[in-house]
Structure formats: structure tokens, C-alpha cells
Amino acid sequence: MARTAPPPLTRGVGWTRLPILLAGLAACVLLFIVPFLVVVATSWTRTSFVAFPPQGFSLSWYRDVLHDPEWTDSFKVSLRVSAIATLIAVVFGTLGALALSRLRSRAARSWLRTLFIIPMAIPPVAYAVGMYSVNLKVSAFQEHLTLLVLGEALLAVPYVFVVVSTGLSQADPALRPAAATLGAPWPMIVLLVDLPLILPQILVGAVFAFAVIFDEVVLSVFLAPIGVKTLPLQMLNASQEALSPQLTAASTLISLLVMVLLGLVSLVSGRRAARARAIARKAATA
């Protein structure tokens, strides 16, 4: 049996493959994997301070974090803030993507796209200072998380918008005209044609948005009410005090949690996509 030929790109890059592979592998190991393993490893230590290499092995710091209300409360606050802000971001990001798909003027489309990406370009600190100024003026906001949630939602809207409008642009452009000629009014088209089609993208956008918001610390620094901390804020504060293994234990726990959850999500959606592909293949050959 003949050896299968290498794919075109592999053949094309020839000897430059080796330096490319080395650069990629070095970047991956040094920038991504090693720092993460260091965080994980330091959380095993028996010492009361962060040490590398870890001294001995124990899981006591994990138990400690899970029973410390400072950490568990901030986790709950983060969950609540992220959930509400994600919901808002998904609604407005999806509406924006739907509006984009219905605009015909090239200039209007281009401006709408730019507007929806802009929150990614705005420095969070400067935006946070602005929100902080609003907070000073309107005392009604100071006690609760409203401004924080709204600000986080704004920062996450671009992610939803990008993913959903990519999904919309991949759909057959004749579907909406088809529904219109079949007698459907526009809300029905949105509900029965657009939304079911982009549901996977909406979910992916929501996961993205949730991750961004859950991770975001700058707005919390300026907008969290006194005594209320989000998880990243709690981490930031902990990192600026004496480095306790509590911090790395909490970091490890939250990272593992996210990896397990997202791993499951992508496993399920990957299996679904594979099944859809298999059906399509069968139909094509039938």
C-alpha cells in the first residue's frame, strides 16, 4: 500500500516546516502550558506561602478555599453578575446581528459593524472610570450591581455580535425571501427561520460572553459596591497581598471547572455536528 501523500501545505512549506513547528511548539509550551502547570503545582504545597517547586503534596488548600466565605461568596457574585450580563449581551448582540442581516446599504452595514466591535477597542480602565463617574452622580446605583452588570454586558456584546452575524451570513440568503413569499410576517420569520438557524451560534456567543464577563476584573475594581467582590476582584486583591496558596488553589479549581464544563459542551456539540455531517454525506451519495 502506497504511503498517503502529505497535504499540499505541508509539501509546500518544505524545510521551513521545522522552524515553524519549533516556534509553534515553543510558544505553546512556554507561554501556555508551563505557566498553567506552575499555578496548579504551587497549589499542592504544604507550606503557608506560595513556593515553587511545591513542598510536599496536600489538597488542604483546596478544602480551605472551599470553606472560606470570601472565596465562595465572590464566586456566587460572579456567577450572578455574569449570568445577567450575558443575557443582556446575548439579546442586544443578536438583535444587532439580525439588524445587520437586513440592512442593504453598504455604508450603513459597515458603520453598524464598526459600532458593534468598538467596545472591544475601548480600554476597560477608561470606560470603568466613566462608569465610576456616573456612579458618583447617581446615588441610586451605588448600593447594587446594576452599573457593573450593564457595563460588563456592553463589553461582551461584540463577542455575541461577531459569532451570531457570522452564523447569519452563512445561511442561505434565499431563506428569508422564501418565508416572505410563503406569507410569513417579519416577526414570524425572525422567530421561525432566523432564530432556530442561529441557535448554535447564539449559544456559542453566550458561552464566549459569559467567559469574558466572568474573567473581567477592571469594571469590578471601580464599580463593585463596598464589601461585594467578584471572583476576579477577589483574586486580584489576594495577589496583591502576601501570596497565599489559597490563590493558586482557587485558580486551579476555577480553571478545572471551566475546562470540564466547556469540554463537555464542545464534546456534545462536536458529536452533533459530526452526526449532521454524516447525514449530509449519506444524502449526497444517495
Binding site: I33, P35, S251, S255, M259, L262
Partner: peptide, 30 residues
Amino acid sequence: TLMAGLLISLWTSVMVRTFGWMLMELPTGA
């Protein structure tokens, strides 16, 4: 390996990734 590294970095927070570098760079760090 590279996909795994990419996923690790996508799925862990900026905060945690920065801690990793902190622990690397400390005078007697990793």
C-alpha cells in the same frame, strides 16, 4: 499539543494566566 495549549489559554482566565507568569518571574520562582 498545540490545540490543547490553545484551549488551556482560552479557557483559563487572564487573571490565572497572569498569576502563572508571576510565579515564573518571582526572584526565586519557577
